[in-house]
Amino acid sequence: MSDPILSVRNLTIRFKGDGRETQVVHGVDFDIHPGETLALVGESGSGKSVTSFALMRLLPEAPRCRIDGQIRMGGTDLLALTEPQMAAYRGPRIAMIFQEPLTSLNPVHRVGDQIAEAIRFHRKMDRTAIRARVLELLRMVGIPDPERRMMAYPHEMSGGMRQRVVIAMALALEPELLIADEPTTALDVTVQAQILDLLRDLQKRTGMAMLFITHDFGVVAEIAERVMVMYSGRIVEEGSLGAVLERPRMPYTSGLLASVPRFEDAGQSKGPLGTIEGFVPSPDKLPAGCSFHPRCPQFRPGLCDQRMPELLPHGRPAHPVRCLRAPDLSLVPEVPA
């Protein structure tokens, strides 16, 4: 396999406030390879968004927030860069899009000017060249009539069109890695489908890698080749799309999958949906042992509440799972896929 374009090692994030320090991400490791899409899935409070913000160095500065570990991109540790050095990475190397496109757009500037500004900040190009590039980008993200649309203000566009503008802006400098944090969550399903198609198509054309953050396993299946499931600040399972969706080994993953209503069962009374009892623990009150044990149907006293399991390969073919019971559990997904 090619060298990863991004390597995260032992990423640890702590927030300080009210005289307390709260650790929200506990030693996360992963690699992203050129051209691949890696999905980071989790419920709210799992630490998935904080992780992605750390990659972009968008979290508050010390002492309010402490980030340890390494985020390596082509031999450079992003965490060791000064802010001006990091600014040179954001855009040309690594870019990010968010759930709500309106927060990424300035309401008082025309969208064309906003894309142009992103280009001008990093590249020495004259006005006509920048204008041509803006038009090319708008066309690339499927905005009809780009000459007219580049003059529009964000509020004059629909949610889907705005998200396309934000994608155009993120891709303006041809980044090697695009981080997409729930980019379709606020959109209607038909628009979501168009944006997912667009991202897939752009990735094929540009060869960029994507880190796709979402809570929706349906979206994961549409876009990702590899999946990481996060719970309480740790990766708890990682594998190919097929491995995680169809042969999950961690009770949390299989529980999540069982709680999703399926089209196959539509209109047929299949009894109640699977649920995971309780809720995600607050990061400053993590239980001892495996963080998931108080909610886990496979919990074994004296084992799971004693120590944190490591992320180790299990199953056949094996993929990494953080569960002490993984060796003796043969978890079939509770909903046959």
Binding site: V189, T190, G218, A221
Partner: peptide, 24 residues
Amino acid sequence: RALFTAPAHPYTETLLSAAPQPKA
């Protein structure tokens, strides 16, 4: 069940086809 197995309106068909399903 009928809506999912035999949609009769093109808009329903579009909506159904757009909804992502958690299947590899």
